[in-house]
Design a protein around this nucleic acid. Structure first.
Lengths: 232, 232
DNA sequence: CGATAACTTGACGGCGGTCAAGCGGCGTGG
DNA sequence: CCACGCCGCTTGACCGCCGTCAAGTTATCG
């Protein structure tokens, strides 16, 4: 049963402004889909056929050059919107990093629905503006920060973003311990580094007792102050 | 006289969807302003008090670290929208690169007007989505391209973007000769390089007869094919 | 014509990329 | 239950690109 009634991101996603009648209409043109970790939802340079809301899980937006270099240009968390409405082609592939649940729409249907529902477009606009802000601050990181600063900034951002999805745990501020949804290679692809450099920076931070790495995917921030100081 | 009637970007900016009555209202809350080259319009971390449409000229959006490193995160050309509606603070300063004419609005006034005019919000959404696409492809450049590829990509993009503003010259395709609105340092700040590296890449391209540099600010593309090949 | 800022060019070194080997956790199969 | 292999990750050695520092050159403007 794929009803908006039971949707866990009902009040956070762009659907938040819609009334029940509108939700019924939206429900009729969308459908839920589960994507296994590592599976793509949208291919780079595809005709932009799909858009979607993330219900659960984490996905990456990635662009690559012909010779195989990759750059992760965005990460989508629950309640985030993915895809490119009102456009011809998407410039990035979307791939699930964890098992993910999404609510997908054919772009044509979504475009039409959006055109008739300004409240939805407004939500989408706010979200897009916020994403643009985040992307721009990431440009600063890519263009002007060194490896140590990149990794420190990354860990702090992960603590913030993953925290948002811990549900109702007393709005406890940023997490100090979390499971990375990224492999080392994917961290490298986010930061514009190589896997070896990322690994060395992680090891250094662990040796300096700024973080602990209880397992490959788990991170515990031991000294947030030190990490912030290194973030540039 | 600052009327929309005579506005040269009337049909390209986000105002394009508005009828005459709406324009009168918009006209009432906005005013034209001229900014000298090098002068700021918006300061980083300011309360987001202003938004604006670019009428003429080129402006940079720039973020900087406490220790003075700069990264240009966007460039605004005529008909582009600048500023951050619906938000608290802006994350970037806006500074004119050339003398610039803009149509400025108090953010509060603009937010209200936008809320009442879905057609305007729709235009703004399309524009923001396009800017996000461009920004993401720039992340690829910053994170994964080397100096030669960065400079080649930059020159090709400049040829395209500046071409858009040559007016009605028979839609002649990308320009082969143009005046950079950037100093060498600003090119470096766009590409995440140093001024010396930019200068060396320019010199190399000139020596290889891929481009000519008739003066400091002027560029002529002699061998577009070679430049494209080097863009990665 | 001189002062100043913008740019170019050269010498050099370090950060981070490349290549390669070693490690370790986990799943599979004997 | 243990042996084995695989894959992701770590670590080391080396080197090249590009940043840094410094000097020289060219435009621009009083």
């Amino acid at each position: 049963m794929s009803s908006c009634d039971t949707c866990v991101v009902r009040n956070r996603a762009i659907c938040a402004g819609l009334d029940n009648a509108e939700l019924v209409t939206l429900n009729a043109i969308g459908r839920r889909r589960t994507i296994a970790a590592g599976e793509p939802l949208i291919w780079e340079d595809d005709d932009s056929l799909l858009v979607a809301n993330v219900i659960d899980g984490v996905l990456k937006l990635v662009t690559s050059t012909e010779d195989g270099r990759e750059q992760i240009v965005g990460v989508a968390y629950p309640s985030d919107f993915i895809g490119r409405p009102f456009g011809q082609t998407t410039k990035a592939s979307v791939v699930a990093l964890t098992e993910a649940k999404v609510c997908v729409f054919a772009r044509r249907d979504f475009d039409r629905f959006a055109g008739e529902h300004p409240a939805l477009e407004h939500k989408l606009l706010e979200r897009t503006l916020a994403e643009l802000d985040r992307t721009r601050s990431w440009m600063m990181l890519l263009g002007r920060k060194n490896a140590a600063e990149k990794v420190a900034t990354f860990l702090l951002e992960m603590a913030d973003r993953l925290d948002d999805n811990r549900g109702c745990q007393a709005a406890a501020g940023p997490a100090t311990r979390f499971a990375l949804p990224f492999s080392r290679q994917q961290v490298a692809d986010v930061l514009g580094l190589t896997i070896e450099t990322v690994s060395r920076q992680f090891s250094r931070l662990k040796a300096d007792r700024v973080i602990d790495l209880p397992s490959r995917r788990d991170v515990e921030i031991l000294d947030r102050r030190a990490l912030t100081a290194q973030a540039g």
